[in-house]
């Protein structure tokens, strides 16, 4: 689907605007627990920046920056962070994902520990959503081949 596209303006603008989109995505994830946004939306914005690179350049360019192996690692890393924080609360003697108990291992009080716990969960959700969205787009766009140039 996506061939290398001969357009200097489009390529340069997309390459220049990508870091700002990623910075915005990180802002949305980091402020997810007290303003609109969160892990899911921030992960989608991070994925959209790399999808923009795939549309302006080609799939090879995206895989140069985020290889398939690293993408799969990110996919499971987010789930591990989410489930790990939940299990940590369970080990410390509270319910699953009851972040208040985390004050036992963090140098803060219970209310602040709750805020940090939800931040950790948002980061995990952001990792997984970003990796899965990029993976879905690459699979749809290349017909599951993950190769670019020769198909069609």
């Amino acid at each position: 689907m996506i061939r290398d596209f001969e357009g200097v303006i489009i390529k340069t603008v997309c390459r220049a605007v990508t870091p700002f989109i990623q910075l915005y995505g990180l802002y949305v994830i980091a402020h997810g627990h007290y303003s609109p946004g969160g892990g899911f939306q921030g992960g989608c914005i991070l994925a959209a920046s790399l999808i923009l690179m795939a549309l302006a350049y080609d799939i090879k360019e995206v895989k140069k920056q985020l290889s398939e192996k690293l993408n799969t690692i990110f996919c499971s890393l987010g789930v591990i962070i989410y489930a790990g924080i939940g299990l940590l609360c369970l080990i410390l003697g509270a319910n699953y994902l009851d972040y208040g108990i985390l004050y036992k291992i963090l140098p803060v009080d219970a209310a602040h520990a709750r805020s940090l716990g939800i931040l950790g969960v948002e980061i995990g959700v952001g990792f997984t959503v970003m990796a899965v969205m990029i993976s879905i787009f690459l699979n749809i766009a290349s017909g599951g081949q993950h190769e670019e140039g020769e198909e069609r």
Binding site: M1, V28, P36, G37, G38, F40, Q41, C44, I45, A47, A48, I51, L55, M133, I136, F137, I140, A141, G143
Partner: peptide
């Protein structure tokens, strides 16, 4: 409903349109 609007903007208008365009090329 600002949070719902945010999700709709990122997922509905941003990501799923790119998915649809990727699928249409096949």
């Amino acid at each position: 409903a600002v949070d719902v609007a945010f999700t709709e903007a990122t997922v509905g208008a941003g990501i799923s349109t790119a998915f649809f365009i990727g699928a249409i090329y096949h």
